[in-house]
Structures are given as C-alpha cells and as structure tokens.
Simulated assay, not measured.
Amino acid sequence: MTTTLVTGANGQNGSPLVDLLAAQGQTVRRATSRTPTQAGEVHLNLATGEGLAAALADVDQLFLLAPSGYSNHHELLIPTIDAAKAAGVRKVLLMSAMGANADDSIPLRRAELHLERSGLAWNVIRPNWFMQNFHTFWLQGIQTQGQILLPVGAAKGSFIDTRDVAAVAAKLLSSDDFVNQSHDLTGSEAFDHTQVAAILSKAAGRTIGYTDVPEDAMRQGLLGAGLPADYAEFLLAILGAFKTGYAERTTDAVQRITGKAPIRLEQYAQDFKAHWA
C-alpha cells in the first residue's frame, strides 16, 4: 500500500486531497505544524525542519507546498526535497504557482529546478489564483464593506477551484502517466473582479462590489493584519503581476489530467455562498 505524506493537509488544497487519496486506498500521513491531535497526523514545521525526518520515515510519496506567510520558499522547500530523497521517497509532487517559472531566480522556481534535478520522480503543479481566496483572504472586505478590495485594476484571472487542484494532485499521485512533467492549472474562463463580484452577489443574494484600491492602501492593510513586511511585499508583487494581465491565460490541464472540466466560478459561488450571505 502506498503511503503519501501531505503537507498543508488541513488547508484548502490539502484537505480535499487527503480525502481523495484515502478513497483510493492510499495510506495518508497528514502533516501539521501544530501538535497532532488525530490518528494519521504528524508534526512537521517546514520553516525549522522540526519533525521532518520522522514525518518522512517509510513514506513513498510527498505532496509538498510552502507554508503561508513566507517568501523565501526555496529555503524551506529545497532541504525538504533533499530529506525526502535521503529517506527513500520515490516521488515528490511540488505545488508551485502559475508564473513562478518566468524567472529562474524566483524562489519557487529555484525549488522547482532543484526537484527536477534531484533524481526523484517528480511533478510540479502551478495553480492560478484560487477561487477560495474570496471566502478566506479577501473575505473581510466583503463582510465589512461589501467590497472586494484589491489593487489589480480591470485585469482578468482564470481563477481555479482548489478542489480541482486536489483532483489533479490525486491523479498525479496515483499514476505515473504524467511523471516528470509540470502543469499550469487554471479555470476554463477568465474574469475581472467586477465580474467576480457580480457572480458572488447573485449567489449570496446581496450586493457585492469591487474597488481597485491603491497599492499602498493594500500594503498598510496587510501590515495591519500582522503579515511580515517581506511577505506583504511578496503579495503586492504577485498582485502587480495579476494587474499586468499575467493571470488571464487559460490551460486545458485540469481536463486533460482528470478527464473533467474545471469547476466554474458560478458553481464555486453557489457552494460557498453562506460565507458572503
């Protein structure tokens, strides 16, 4: 029986992935940075390396993503890849981000390249911006002001549902059909944030708008929420890339790998409307 270690197992991507892998009959080891409270959980802090050797013991596959709140992704991911190889892990699936391969000096790209050269079986997935951000990271503005508040102008993004990211990851971790390949993952259609707001409004039964806020206002909001300065600047940089149109592109990867069309933004809005209503 295959044993797969899932980092970020309680997150938007990891949680549905755990369920899909378990349904396939895999033994899933769920990594948590907190003290484990349930069977199948193991303590792992990628920022410090604490618990890494124990978490990787007798593992066949690793689903790896960088924890939120850090911009030095390569410094966390590369030692983990090396430890996985030393532990005898066969395959590593790294979740990166769409656009990370634009420049080999980008921290996530440095981790991608290290994995590709590691000698391990590998996959890299690069999702576009998540639909789920609208009921998590961007939720406060919607709840308190009825507005999506972002410095991205009228640019469009082909947002992807994290359930589709999990479905792709589950397929790649249950087959070698796509081994040693990278895939950019998107939804099937691109929307600007005014269009997103209209779709959320219809599902929630209330008016939600979009305000293109100045970058510095976004910076102050991020810092006021307690984010480290370097991570706030990282978020502003990738939001800037969105504003220039980098997130508008669509791919067929979800359909090609899973055999199913990506979840539509309208369906996502219906499924999570209670958060905005």
Rank of each mutant, 00 (worst) to 15 (best):
141 G>V: 00
102 A>G: 14
150 L>F: 03
112 E>Y: 02
132 Q>G: 08
112 E>Q: 05
108 L>Q: 14
149 L>D: 06
112 E>R: 00
146 G>D: 12
104 D>G: 12
154 A>V: 13
155 A>G: 06
154 A>L: 14
98 M>K: 02
126 R>A: 10
95 M>E: 15
101 N>G: 14
133 N>M: 07
122 W>Y: 11
134 F>M: 09
134 F>N: 07
115 L>V: 07
110 R>I: 14
94 L>P: 03
104 D>M: 06
137 F>G: 11
102 A>D: 13
148 I>Q: 01
156 K>P: 08
120 L>M: 06
119 G>R: 02
127 P>S: 09
153 G>N: 03
98 M>D: 13
113 L>F: 13
138 W>P: 02
139 L>R: 09
156 K>D: 11
147 Q>E: 14
133 N>Y: 06
106 I>A: 12
110 R>C: 02
107 P>C: 09
131 M>P: 09
151 P>L: 04
142 I>C: 08
153 G>E: 08
90 R>C: 12
130 F>L: 07
124 V>L: 01
94 L>W: 09
104 D>T: 15
123 N>I: 02
103 D>V: 00
119 G>H: 00
91 K>A: 10
92 V>I: 10
109 R>L: 09
147 Q>G: 12
142 I>Y: 06
112 E>G: 07
118 S>L: 02
153 G>V: 01
112 E>T: 07
111 A>F: 04
124 V>E: 02
132 Q>A: 03
143 Q>M: 09
138 W>M: 13
154 A>E: 15
127 P>Y: 12
118 S>W: 03
103 D>C: 00
145 Q>F: 15
113 L>I: 13
152 V>I: 14
107 P>R: 03
111 A>W: 01
104 D>L: 13
125 I>R: 04
114 H>Q: 01
131 M>S: 07
107 P>N: 00
152 V>E: 00
124 V>M: 00
147 Q>T: 10
124 V>D: 04
97 A>V: 13
144 T>A: 11
122 W>P: 03
103 D>K: 07
158 S>A: 15
142 I>L: 04
114 H>W: 02
123 N>Y: 08
138 W>S: 09
147 Q>H: 12
140 Q>S: 15
157 G>Q: 03
139 L>F: 02
148 I>A: 06
96 S>T: 08
105 S>C: 03
136 T>G: 00
136 T>I: 08
136 T>N: 13
108 L>I: 05
90 R>S: 15
100 A>N: 05
131 M>D: 11
102 A>I: 06
152 V>Q: 03
101 N>C: 14
133 N>D: 08
106 I>G: 01
99 G>I: 00
128 N>Y: 02
109 R>M: 14
146 G>C: 02
156 K>H: 09
93 L>H: 05
110 R>E: 05
136 T>H: 01
135 H>W: 00
121 A>D: 15
146 G>R: 13
104 D>Q: 15
129 W>D: 11
100 A>E: 09
153 G>Y: 10
99 G>D: 08
108 L>H: 13
108 L>G: 14
158 S>P: 12
140 Q>I: 07
137 F>W: 12
142 I>G: 03
142 I>H: 03
138 W>A: 14
134 F>C: 00
131 M>G: 05
127 P>G: 00
151 P>T: 07
110 R>N: 06
